[in-house]
Design a protein around this nucleic acid. Structure first.
Length: 586
RNA sequence: GGACUCAUAGCUCAAUUGGAUAGAGCACCGGCCUACGGAGCCGGGGGUUGGAGGUUCGAGUCCUCCUGAGUCCGCCA
């Protein structure tokens, strides 16, 4: 259930009843910051003080009285300047947890009532180039958001808007004819394409003839010349293999791969439309939208002197044009209600402009830029995408290093007798822990701020890091293994009760899960789920230290097994929602 | 020149979007292995939230100014 939503409704009605108002008012329910204030507080009395001309505490008193006698609430009391503190009834909380324990499909989290069709546009690498660290955040943040929204019940379409139609293909076509090696292309496609691209781009810089040939080939490609089209398709196809390998490692998938090329034919029409409607005009040979001349543009854009260009003076189109065509397609063909663009903060101006154009075109769609900060090195400067010897640090090699570092720590742990991993499981555990550590280090932070990439912190495996959460899960699994019990069977039969303080603390954390997932979905902030799971793992570890499970007497034993099962499932589900896996032994 | 983002403990980050005495991890100090896994648990010190005004019952959060950092802005994506 959604606890906060339920309490908000209780509180709103209590306010209306207690103060004799015709309609419910916002209860402004919030979790308390300190357990001594109870579990939740109603802040809604204070804003009413002015309107009703009474001191807030005098308003809070009858509200608290109106809440007594409700099953969920053990007691409600006035505190501070006019807060109403709510203490939940442990018995009621325990019943809700038992309900959640029975609900194996959704762990007690309801699905949304109004389903939206949401496009999540993320990752978006360029074809013919290696994915590097710069692609990491979009890929894993986008994946997490898509997972969260699908779990909540939205109709999510994951679209990889790959860069497969740029000027680089003219150079690649002439380059491959000159220096291409088909065997090398088959063996390691992107490596070969990059090698040739470098040669071609260098020669184009020095030789105008060569550069002209590249432009001619590009023009032929864009005019659907069969031979060039065939070559281009070949490049795209072999590149896909390398991309798929990285996505498989990250456990990331897509429903659509509609790259720039998919919209190529729509672009002239877009520009005609913009010109016809008087939104754009020609200037210095290019077709532009001038915000200073657009009355209903957002204020900050109107001060922008530089225009939004949709066609270059040489007649070629730009990514701005493609992006407009993409929104049109998503609206007209996919019937999407929303589109989320998981793209670096640095492109915020571009999206602000794009969204403003779509409003001028009367496209009724919720468009949102889900920005994120830069990945920094330990020195606080943007992480270098090249190593000391000048080679590109690819995403694939970074993930390899994560797995390797995890494997080392696991082997140390086994050698010291601290960890229990079967020899044949080491590879899989290193993968889950290593990749999970990289993802968690990123996702646990507010996506808007820059974040510091630090191997030592990530793989230190202490405190708030991915392995801590996975370890808590392994502890749960280990209890069932040791007891010779099936988690699912316990989930069917156990009744949860909350007696010991550590049980109550754990129980109250468990009950907040649904609220957290909803908020993470509504604000596109996966870190809220990470934070919750971390706090849950802490509460579970406290319970684990305090409360024996297998050695307890019935009915406490069954209840504690139920708490353990629900904790395990919530950790697994929560981590799963941000794309991180778990293992039973680590 | 214009626009946007940011500034919180020694370091890395939170703060449920305006709620009570600003919380975690790392690092530092001190406890806990005859209880299901010590990658763990319990406790301690550490803050004028960059500065100055303002808005109101109430500000890390909103507004103005200042200081400092970053990013983007005509034919790349």
């Amino acid at each position: 259930m959604l606890l906060e939503r339920y309490l908000e409704s209780l509180g709103a009605h209590a306010i209306a009843e207690a103060l004799d108002l015709d309609a419910p008012r916002p209860a402004l329910i919030r979790p308390t910051q300190d357990a001594k204030f109870g579990d939740f507080q109603i802040n809604g009395a204070m804003p009413l003080a002015k309107e009703l001309r009474k001191p807030p505490r005098e308003l809070a008193q009858p509200i608290a009285a109106a809440l007594t006698g409700i099953d969920a609430i053990e007691r409600a009391e006035v505190a501070g300047p006019g807060f109403v503190n709510i203490h939940l009834s442990p018995a009621w909380v325990a019943e809700r947890l038992t309900d959640a324990l029975r609900d194996r499909d959704r762990d007690g989290v309801p699905a949304v009532e109004d389903v939206s069709k949401v496009i999540v546009d993320f990752s978006s690498p360029n074809i013919a180039k290696q994915m590097h660290v710069g692609h990491l955040r979009s890929t894993i943040i986008g994946d997490a958001i898509a997972r969260i929204l699908s779990f909540l019940g939205d109709d999510v379409v994951r679209d990889n808007h790959i860069g497969d139609w740029g000027t680089q293909f003219g150079l690649l076509i002439v380059g491959m004819r000159e220096w291409g090696d088909e065997a090398a292309l088959q063996a390691d496609p992107i490596k070969e394409l990059e090698r040739v691209y470098k040669l071609a781009s260098k020669r184009a810089g020095g030789e105008e003839d060569f550069a002209q040939r590249a432009r001619d080939e590009l023009a032929k490609l864009q005019a659907s010349d069969p031979e060039n089209l065939e070559l281009w398709k070949h490049f795209v196809q072999v590149s896909r293999g390398s991309l798929d390998a990285v996505y498989a490692e990250l456990d990331v998938s897509f429903d659509l791969w509609l790259g720039e090329s998919a919209y190529h034919e729509a672009l002239p029409g877009i520009v005609e439309d913009l010109l016809g409607k008087g939104i754009a005009r020609e200037d210095e040979g290019a077709v532009c939208i001038f915000w200073s001349e657009t009355d209903d543009a957002p204020k900050s854009l109107r001060k922008q002197k530089t225009p939004f260009i949709v066609r270059k003076k040489d007649g070629a189109f730009l990514y701005s044009t493609t992006d407009i065509a993409t929104v049109q397609h998503r609206k007209r063909q996919l019937h999407a209600d929303r589109a989320l663009y998981v793209v670096d903060n640095r492109q915020s101006l571009h999206f602000k402009q794009l969204f403003a154009v779509m409003r001028l075109l009367d496209v009724d769609m919720e468009l949102e830029h889900i920005g994120f900060g830069t990945v920094l090195g330990k020195d606080g400067k943007p992480l270098r995408t090249r190593d000391a010897s000048g080679g590109v640090i690819t995403l694939a090699s970074l993930l390899e290093e994560a797995k390797e570092r995890a494997r080392q720590r696991i082997e140390e742990g086994i050698a010291e007798g601290r960890l229990r991993v079967l020899p044949e499981e080491i590879g899989e555990v290193a993968r889950v822990v290593g990749i999970g550590a990289v993802k968690y280090a990123d996702l646990r932070q507010n996506r808007l701020s820059d974040y510091q990439f630090d191997w030592d912190k990530m793989i230190s495996f202490q405190g708030n890091a991915g392995p801590y959460l996975q370890y808590a899960y392994a502890r749960c699994a280990s209890i069932f293994a040791k007891g010779g019990l099936e988690m699912d069977a316990i989930a069917e039969s156990a009744s949860i009760r909350l007696d010991a303080p550590a049980e109550q603390t754990l129980g109250k954390h468990l009950l907040r899960f649904g609220d957290v997932v909803y908020q993470a979905g509504a604000t596109s902030q996966p870190h809220l789920i990470c934070e919750h799971i971390y706090e849950l793992a802490r509460a579970f570890n406290g319970f684990y230290a305090e409360c024996p499970v297998l050695d307890a007497d019935e009915p406490t034993r069954a209840s504690r097994l139920g708490l353990t099962a629900l904790s395990a499932r919530q950790i697994r589900r929560g981590l799963g929602l941000v794309g991180i896996g778990v293992v039973d032994r680590m």
